[in-house]
Design a binder for these strands. Structure first.
Lengths: 232, 232
DNA sequence: TAATCCATGTGGTTGGACCACATCAACTAG
DNA sequence: CTAGTTGATGTGGTCCAACCACATGGATTA
C-alpha cells in the first residue's frame, strides 16, 4: 500500500468514527506527517485527493478560512470526474443527457411542495426574466434545475444532477451559439420552466416529470445533441 | 491558480484534443515537469487526482504495466467519492439505496435482449448457485447487478450504478450478519435474480423493473435499512 | 489612542536525493 | 552457439530541507 493511501485511510477513519465532522479542521500538514510517521509530501497527496473529491477545502493564511476544513460538496467533485471521462470519449454526451432526463424526471415527480428549494426555484425564474446576456441566463437555468432536483429530498440524486449539469456546462454554452434564434429559444425555455413549476406546485408529479423530460430533450435536440453519436 | 491545477488543465486539454487517448501513456513525471516548467511534485499531485478520478493508472518499473496510462474507470472513482461522503454523514445510506433502485429499475426496463452483458449475467447466476461463502456470493451479486445495468447501454448509468454499489459495499457485507437466516435469504435472492433475468429476456421491461425494485428494497428492508434515518 | 510592524502558523512550491521495481541488452560461462 | 547472469536504464514512490505568499493578531511606536 502506498503511503498517501495510508493517510487517506487514517482520515477516512477519523470521519467514520466522528472524530472529524463537517466543518472541522484537519491537523496541519506538518503535524499529520509527524503523527503518521510519513513525509509531508504524502500527506499533501492525500489532501489533494480529498480536495478533488469535495471532502475538504484547503486555505492558506490564518483565521477563519485557513487550514484544511471538512466540507461536503460531492456535486462539483463528481462533475469534474465526469467531465474528464467525457474528454476521454468514454462517456458520450448523449448518455449524460439521457441520465439527466432520468434523474430530473424522477425528482420532479417526487418534489415536495412547500420546501425552501421550490421557493428558491421560483425566485430564480423571476431573475431569469430579467437576465440580459446568455451566460447569466444559463447560470440561473443551472441553479433552477438543481433547486428543482433538491425539492425531491434525495441528496444523492441532487449531487448527481449537479454533477451531470456541471460536466456538460461548457458544452451547453458552446451549443447556444448554434441556435437559430436565441431570443425565441429563451422565451420558450422560460415558459416551460413556469409550466414545470406550476405542475409541481399543483402536486401533479406525473405532468411535471413529462414536462421536464420534454424540456431537457427539447433543448439538446434543438442544439443538435441527443440523437446519434457524440459529436465531441 | 495553483500549479497542480495548471498541470491538470494541460492534461485535460491533451485528452480533449485527442493527443492523448484511452490506453495512451502520459509523458514521464520528470519530462512533464520540465515541459510545463513546474516541479515534479506538482505534476505528481495532478496525477494523483487523475488516478483518484479513475482516469489514469500509475505503474512502476518498465514495460507493459509501467508508466502512467490513460484508463476509464469512472465507477470505482465515483464509488470512493460517495463512500467518503457517506462517512461524513452528508449522504444517508437510505438515499443511496433509493437512487440505486431508481437507476437499476430504469436499466432493467430498457435492457436490450441479446447483448453480451446479459449472457454474462446468466453465467454469474450459475456461479452464484455454486457459491459457498457469503462474501463470494455478494461479490457475484454485485457483478450481476452491474452487468444488468450495462445491458441498458447507457455508460453513465452503468458507472453510477457501480459506484453506488461500491459505496455501500462494506456496509452491505456487515448487514448480512444481522440476517436471521442467510440460507433462506440467499435462496430467495437467487430466485429473484432468475425471475428478473427471465422478464428481461421476455422483453417484459415493466415487469423486470418492478422485480428489480422489489428485489433491492426487499434486501435492505430485511437488513434494517431503507426506512427511517441512516443508522450510520 | 491609533497606526504600524513583525512574529507566528497556515498551505504552496521547489530541487535534489535516494529507493524499489521491471525490463532489456550486454556479457559470460558452459 | 546457447543459456544464464549481470548491470544499465527508466519508471513511479518517498523523503527532506528550504523557501514563498498569505492572513492574523499582538507588540511596538508615533
Amino acid at each position: 500500500m502506498r503511503t498517501h493511501e495510508l493517510v487517506l485511510q487514517w482520515i477516512e477513519k477519523q470521519l467514520s468514527d466522528g472524530d472529524l465532522a463537517l466543518g472541522g479542521r484537519l491537523p496541519g500538514e506538518r503535524a499529520m506527517a509527524e503523527q503518521l510517521k510519513v513525509s509531508r509530501t504524502s500527506v499533501r497527496e492525500a489532501v489533494r485527493i480529498l480536495e478533488a473529491m469535495g471532502v475538504v477545502r484547503a486555505g492558506v493564511g490564518s483565521g477563519k478560512d485557513a487550514g484544511t476544513v471538512v466540507i461536503a460538496e460531492p456535486g462539483s467533485a463528481l462533475g469534474s470526474t465526469l467531465r474528464l471521462h467525457v474528454a476521454t470519449r468514454h462517456l458520450p454526451v448523449a448518455d449524460i443527457v439521457e441520465t439527466r432526463v432520468l434523474l430530473e424526471s424522477w425528482a420532479a415527480e417526487r418534489a415536495q411542495v412547500g420546501v425552501p428549494a421550490l421557493e428558491e426555484a421560483a425566485e430564480l425564474l423571476d431573475q431569469m426574466d430579467a437576465a440580459s446576456d446568455i451566460d447569466a441566463f444559463l447560470a440561473l437555468d443551472a441553479r433552477f434545475h438543481v433547486a428543482l432536483a433538491q425539492a425531491a429530498g434525495n441528496s444523492v440524486v441532487s449531487a448527481m444532477m449537479a454533477s451531470l449539469r456541471g460536466a456538460i456546462e461548457n458544452y451547453a454554452g458552446e451549443l447556444t451559439g448554434n441556435l437559430p434564434d436565441w431570443n425565441a429559444t429563451s422565451d420558450r425555455l422560460r415558459a416551460e420552466h413556469r409550466a414545470i413549476l406550476t405542475a409541481v406546485n399543483d402536486n401533479d408529479g406525473g405532468r411535471a416529470a413529462e414536462l421536464v423530460a420534454a424540456h431537457i430533450q427539447g433543448f439538446y435536440t434543438e442544439a443538435g445533441v441527443g440523437s446519434g453519436p457524440s459529436p465531441r
